[in-house]
Write a protein that binds this DNA or RNA. Structure first.
Length: 941
RNA sequence: GCCCGGAUGGCGGAACUGGCAGACGCAGCGGACUCAAAAUCCGCCGCCCGCGAGGGUGUGAGGGUUCGAAUCCCUCUCCGGGCACCA
């Protein structure tokens, strides 16, 4: 850190001067509403926007944590801010703001510990975070910065919930429609009632049940992940593979509970197909595709029989390989499969191998023991080896009279497909391993290549064998034919299966949006829109409950007795209702905040349609619309981005938004990592106190320590805060350094000692414009010479395209080169060059540039933000004489200066005249000559 | 196991569509200025040989395509991320 002393020139650009400049301009911009972007109509139609094309740029909004920022947090915010400032100077009307995702667990945990209402803590954290971000000079339109906990905001989150509740998915039209249209179709007879009666013949309870079962938001009695330590039920995606909570790594138990579900599976195909229309990182698209997990296959029914009974309930399986049907030698159900209790035999058939019985006296005992053991093991342990239990009954393979034994085994998962599989050990390696373990026969149904090992399943293509009418056909043709036969005979049909499940939407928390639903005797009833917002009641009882392993889920709102039951008149006279006690998940508020940024003060609609279409509609026909650029961490690749897409598509179907997708372009910013140091006990030591180098070794308090790279944070004792950097260098230097470190989408290690390089760049620019001793301008008023002018315009050209492509690191390198040339000349920058350079710097270092801009133009000048971003003069980009390298036999042997428009013969003769080239040609005959215009002269001898 | 990325000096990175590898910055080395140091300015800075001009070699490894490959193709190694008994 540079220590100012008596010798430091009084007007040097150092941390103190930067701080003064930064706070002065921040105050000025705030007072002048410099970042306020106008809407085409409505309350926010004022502001200093541009009349040019619109652009909507957004960061993933943060959770307002109480622990403060480190230098890694604002990386993406700085990048969007630079881009936004560039696009504003390039004439775009840019919407850019920042909100807060403020519901959630930490505030509630804080409330539990302090007894203080979570809103107080939340709002304090928001204020603190705003202050820290403001210090960076981010150009947000503050009027638009909503928090999901604002009552005016979650009113509309609740409104959207009701829109979804009051909709159903019409598979014929592949879109959501109002639930009233479904009722209309049932009552008019256009749509048959599921059980064949007419609509009028159904009781009110039955009608309600039919309608409710079609809603996009519905109540299901489902096994949920109950986490006693957190006191909440978790979504599947919040539970790790080891069966523990992602947050805190606590134990999670399965409990049945009435839960709100969102029918996202109805949109699986559209969510999948429309990925192709998005300008997103391929990795994120792949993750979403994997998450949705679409696979085509067939449902096949296997009749189950036993020696004692005649016909039982058939076992239905899903398979992607119906062509291997004739290789089925056994069946497996998931241990939790509902058919198990029916299919389990009273006694073991004669001659059953001991291996199949688990040593139990009866099948029922064996099943009970197996289930008990499976429940104790984690999923990871269960995956180690194949195990199962015979149920004592058989199933019959369709088209044959072959009877195959039915097992339960935990390698079959209840949560995928039908929870049952046909065991085909010849063609599936998992089935093969099970068959080996239980001595089951193997029948190959596809002829493997001669070199295929006998002991492995064969999953490749080839002619069908042992498969009756399929024999000789390849896999694809076999699939087609078998599905045809299955369909004809009623044994099966083709189907599409998805890995994705419906979205579990309830949380047993206090600090979330109340679900605007009450219950009467028949089920859920929506509150009318005019009863929104449904505000959270005050909760004073924050005492932790005994959260034992065997406890039952309990929503905190259940403690507010005067809230639980309510008398309401919902249009048919006053009735007593029970309220929904669950709240929404944190994902809810973040599903649609981009829409509220557009029109945050509107109390008539979530967003005015004209405002929405101005900012969200795609100018290109066939475009998907949405936010033009969305920047955030890759950790939201699936959940947040998938849920938001789902809601957006529902809103689109219902006519509330104008485009198919919420986020047209997505960039995942990389993470800033930092070195952390461990002593010989393996304990982390404060990174800032470590001395030494990789060569000399690192030491802390004289003791050797080892270095590793990790996430910046308290646990690794390697945090560097923006405040540290403001104190040492100022916000503009921090911004410049973070943008210079590397490409935006790449992880990079933080190195505090390198930050000084970015400050030195700014100091050199400053010195080329301002005299450090006097503070006077030291620019040259005569015009710049031709060489400098050409360099300037090459720089403009490069910087413009780098800015456009968000390659800020190379833009900064080009600006540095230009400035280094000015420094080398040592005469102060020509005024016209200085003014252009300052404009190019303005997006990166706005305070610094504004200060120099005003010094160059006098106090009355308008902000540099309002100046146009420089455009290169094409005439100054073309050179008359260019230097071209010459290759002889693939190696560069010299360079020649030739006319830019020289033809090949001219270029080659110039090359041959160059002494070193001539020496390497050595008078030999040219076998080949080549001139790539302006690039390279190639000679082959 | 499967699917995505990635690997370039001591370090972060640059090289746009196959055309001068190492821009820019950090660190390091040398010089100027200074009584001295800091700061600043100038220069050097992949590795090997050479006083030098210059030569050889070089983008994780091996092979290929091409007049020409960091860039395209094949095989492999290592690192990061995602998914994982998904039928």
């Amino acid at each position: 850190m540079p220590v100012p002393d008596a010798d430091t020139p009084p007007h040097r650009y150092d941390a103190a001067l930067a701080a003064a400049i930064e706070s002065r301009w921040q105050d000025h911009w705030e007072a002048s509403g410099a970042y306020e972007t106008p809407n085409p109509a409505g309350a926010l139609s004022t502001g200093r926007g541009s009349s040019g094309p619109k652009l909507f740029v957004m960061d993933m909004f943060p959770y307002p944590s109480g622990s403060g920022l480190h230098v890694g947090h604002p990386l993406g915010y700085i990048a969007t801010d630079v881009y936004v400032r560039f696009k504003r100077m390039a004439g775009f009307n840019v919407l850019y703001t920042m909100g807060f995702d403020a519901f959630g667990l930490p505030a509630e945990e804080h409330a539990r510990q302090t007894g203080q209402h979570p809103r107080i803590n939340t709002e304090a954290n928001i204020d603190n975070m705003r202050r820290q971000l403001d210090r960076l000079g981010l150009g947000h339109d503050k009027r638009r910065g909503v928090a999901t906990t604002d009552i005016d905001y979650y009113r509309w989150t609740q409104w959207i919930f009701l829109q979804i509740f009051n909709s159903w998915f019409d598979p014929g039209e592949r879109r959501a429609r109002p639930i009233a249209e479904l009722v209309d179709e049932f009552s008019s007879g256009r749509r048959p009632v599921p059980d064949g009666r007419t609509w009028e013949e159904l009781s009110e309870a039955e009608q309600r049940e039919v309608v409710d079962s079609h809603r996009l938001a519905y109540v299901a009695d489902a096994p949920v992940n109950w986490c006693p330590a957190l006191g909440t039920v978790l979504a599947n995606e919040e539970v790790t593979n080891e069966g523990r909570s992602e947050r805190g790594n606590h134990e999670v138990f399965k409990r049945p509970l009435k839960q709100w579900m969102m029918r996202i599976t109805a949109y699986a195909d559209r969510l999948l197909e429309d990925l192709d229309l998005l300008d997103w990182p391929e990795s994120v698209k792949t993750m979403q595709r994997n998450w949705i997990g679409r696979s085509e296959g067939a449902l096949i029914s296997f009749p189950a029989t036993s020696s004692a009974h005649l016909e039982m309930q058939p076992i239905e399986v899903f398979t992607t390989r119906p062509d291997t049907l004739f290789g089925t030698t056994y069946m497996v159900l998931a241990p939790e499969h509902p058919l198990v209790d029916e299919l389990v035999a009273d006694a073991w058939p004669a001659g059953v191998p001991e291996l199949w019985t688990g040593g139990a006296a009866t099948p029922r005992e064996a099943v009970a023991a197996y289930r008990a053991r499976a429940a104790e093991l984690s999923d990871a342990d269960r995956s180690d080896s194949k195990s199962g239990i015979f149920l004592g009954h058989d199933a019959v393979v369709p088209f044959t009279d072959t009877r195959v034994p039915v097992f339960i085994a935990d390698y079959v998962l209840m949560g995928y497909g039908t929870g049952a599989v046909m065991g085909v050990p010849g063609e599936d390696q998992r089935d093969r391993e099970f068959a080996e373990a239980y001595s089951l026969p193997v029948i190959r149904t596809v002829e493997p290549p001669p070199d295929h090992p006998d002991e492995l399943a064969y999953t490749g293509d080839g002619p069908s064998i042992n498969s009756r009418f399929l024999d000789g056909l390849d896999v694809e043709a076999s699939k087609v034919l078998i599905i045809e036969r299955l369909t004809e005979t009623g044994f099966g049909r083709s189907t599409v299966n998805y890995r994705m499940r419906d979205w579990l939407f309830s949380r047993q928390r206090y600090w979330g949006e109340p679900i605007p639903i009450v219950f009467d005797d028949y089920g859920p009833v929506a509150l009318p829109d005019d009863m929104l917002p449904l505000e959270l009641p005050e909760l004073t009882d924050w005492a932790p409950r005994a959260l034992a392993r065997d406890s039952e889920p309990e929503p905190p709102l259940g403690r507010v007795t005067e809230w639980v039951g309510v008398d309401l008149d919902l249009g048919d006279g006053p009735h007593h209702y029970r309220r929904e006690l669950n709240t929404m998940p944190q994902w809810a508020g973040s599903c649609w905040y981009y829409l509220r940024y557009l029109d945050p003060t509107n109390d008539e609609a979530l967003v005015d349609p004209d405002v929405e279409s101005y900012w969200m509609a795609d100018p290109d026909p066939g475009g998907v619309g949405g936010v033009d650029l969305y920047v955030g961490g890759v950790e939201h690749a699936v959940l947040h981005l998938l849920y938001a897409r789902f809601w957006h598509k529902v809103l689109y179907d219902l006519g509330h938004v104008s485009g198919l997708e919420p986020f047209k372009r997505l960039i995942n910013q990389g993470y800033i990592q930092a070195y952390a140091f461990k002593d010989d006990r393996g304990v982390y030591v404060a990174a800032e106190e470590v001395e030494g180098s990789l060569q000399k070794g690192f030491r802390h308090d004289g003791q050797p320590v080892t270095r590793e790279l990790g996430k910046m944070g308290k646990s690794l004792k390697n945090s560097v805060t923006p405040d540290d950097m403001y104190a040492s260098y100022g916000a503009d230097t921090l911004r410049l350094y973070e943008m210079f470190m590397g490409p935006i989408d790449q992880d990079r290690p933080w190195e505090t000692r390198s930050v000084v390089g970015s400050q030195r760049v700014l100091q050199r620019v400053w010195r080329n414009v301002v005299d450090e001793e006097t503070g006077e301008l030291r620019i040259a008023d005569e015009p710049s010479d031709d060489d400098l002018l050409r360099l300037l315009h090459r720089t403009i050209d490069g910087v413009r395209s780098d800015m456009e492509g968000m390659r800020f690191n190379t833009a900064i390198a080009k600006l540095t080169e230009l400035n280094n040339e000015l420094t080398r000349r040592g005469t102060g920058a020509p005024r016209e060059v200085a003014a252009v350079m300052v404009r190019m710097l303005a997006p990166l270092v706005p305070h610094f540039a504004e200060e120099l801009w005003h010094r160059l133009h006098g106090g009355g000048a308008d902000s540099v933000m309002r100046a146009e971003f420089p455009a290169a003069d094409p005439a100054l980009l073309v050179e008359d004489i260019i230097e071209v390298p010459v290759q002889v036999n693939g190696k560069v042997r010299g360079r020649v200066r030739i006319a830019a428009d020289a033809d090949e013969d001219t270029a080659v003769s110039a090359a041959l005249a160059e002494p070193n080239v001539a020496a390497h040609v050595g008078g030999r005959e040219l076998r080949k000559q080549l001139y790539v215009s302006g690039r390279m002269i190639t000679l082959v001898v």
